[in-house]
Design a protein around this nucleic acid. Structure first.
Lengths: 237, 237
DNA sequence: GCTCGATTCAAACGCCCGTTTGAAACTATC
DNA sequence: GATAGTTTCAAACGGGCGTTTGAATCGAGC
């Protein structure tokens, strides 16, 4: 029997159910990261969380809604943080257009903060997110596009001022590439080992990664438009 | 047909079983692309292929081995093509180091050729591949890292000559970002709609995508090393 | 002390999964 | 036409899945 909590009164039930919900969310975050959405069963999940099997359906409705709740819990604050940071930069710049690097910082810093904050799920969540990007399930795709719409549009406007040589369509593509490299990097469950071993024993790995990713992405965004003839398919031999 | 060793199976049998195997592989390629590995059932798959349910286990052993066969059928030739193309460029350059763009072409062109070749699975396969990159299942990760090891190492050597300002470790990271943007872009089942609509009615979409991706990646690879202080976490407010 | 809504729990529901089985069908060879 | 090896087939196996159910438990308010 779990210890009864005499502290709170009317909120006691709330606190208990909150506790159950939180334990489910935490276990789901970890297991979805380790095995993916489909391969994680509710029996496995509720077992790890130490709650009854039926608790997921009681508190969240379905497994899919649980997954959305896992994403929302972290994504909403992170994207709001991104928008707030961008707004602060814009206010501080006093009408002068921001540099590409500065705008990129507003995107990456909240992600990095989240990655380093173990109390908010840290890397666990970012890997779940990175995987979700590549998932073809319609409910995931619709959910993500809705979640990201506002944030992406705000950043697109800012980048358009910083990169006047790009059309809106060209920028859309490049932001797509940025999100690709970012999500793939964050998702990287051992993906690094695909090509090489990282130097062992490095502290603060995520910060190091983003410090490498940022100049790469900034240079890509600032690149001149491509010459259609640079990439020939017909191999002239 | 005078076969050297007629003690083995007949040609007619081979043709039949080859046909069944091919139909399974084709259906698997499409369904794994549409729904992912876990979410595709063998009943669905064999139904679409018009073969008996047991045929997958008879010809491939398990569902996992079928998935590896789906990947191998396209990946082996494509990676070989990449290596061959890089070798040809190296031969033609006569000891002078190749440009970054040229090396990148050797990576992208075979992928583009595959994407445009409907008879080799085209986009279907590339989306399966893009998803596989983000899959945490150990058997997929081990398989992919083995498949890619040789190709990646060959290209790393070439890039190291083209980008002398990068250490081997730094280059490893940047190639990681390159693979990320590439696989994410190729995987993109409607991922584009995450941020914006593409101009409708464009012909030869994949070629257009790679012509946009190539300059982005080349610029990223050539970028100067990042300044650790460019990305501050402590938001001085 | 009783009620009542919220939460937990064990058990079951119906369904679909990947795989196995053993017999039938087919075909080249003798 | 019997033989042997390969491939197909219908059927079933055991098990795990997400979800539902209805009773038990709990705490707060009257």
């Amino acid at each position: 029997m779990p210890t009864p909590r005499p502290a709170r009164r009317s909120i006691a039930m709330d606190a208990l159910s909150q506790d159950t919900k939180t334990r489910i969310l935490d276990a789901a975050e970890t297991l979805f990261m380790e095995h993916g959405f489909e391969a994680t069963s509710l029996r496995q999940l509720t077992g790890a969380a130490g709650v009854n099997l039926a608790a997921v359906n009681y508190h969240f409705g379905t497994k899919e809604e649980l997954f959305q709740a896992v994403l929302t819990r972290r994504l909403d604050p992170m994207n709001q943080e991104r928008i707030d940071l961008l707004d602060r930069y814009l206010r501080e710049s006093r009408a002068k257009p921001l540099s590409c690097e500065k705008i990129l910082s507003a995107m990456l810093i909240p992600a990095l903060r989240l990655a380093r904050d173990e109390k908010r799920g840290g890397k666990h969540f970012l890997r779940v997110l990175g995987r979700a990007y590549a998932d073809p399930a319609p409910f995931i795709r619709h959910f993500l596009s809705a979640q990201y719409a506002e944030m992406i549009n705000r950043f697109k406007d800012a980048f358009l001022e910083a990169l006047p040589h790009l059309t809106r369509q060209e920028l859309t593509w490049r932001l797509h590439f940025v999100m690709g490299a970012l999500s793939y990097t964050l998702a990287g469950t051992d993906a690094l080992k695909l090509m090489a071993q990282v130097a062992p024993g490095e502290k603060d790995n995520d910060e190091m990664v983003l410090q490498r990713l940022a100049p790469f992405l900034a240079a890509g965004l600032k690149a001149p438009l491509g010459d259609p003839r640079k990439l020939e398919l017909v191999s002239g031999d």
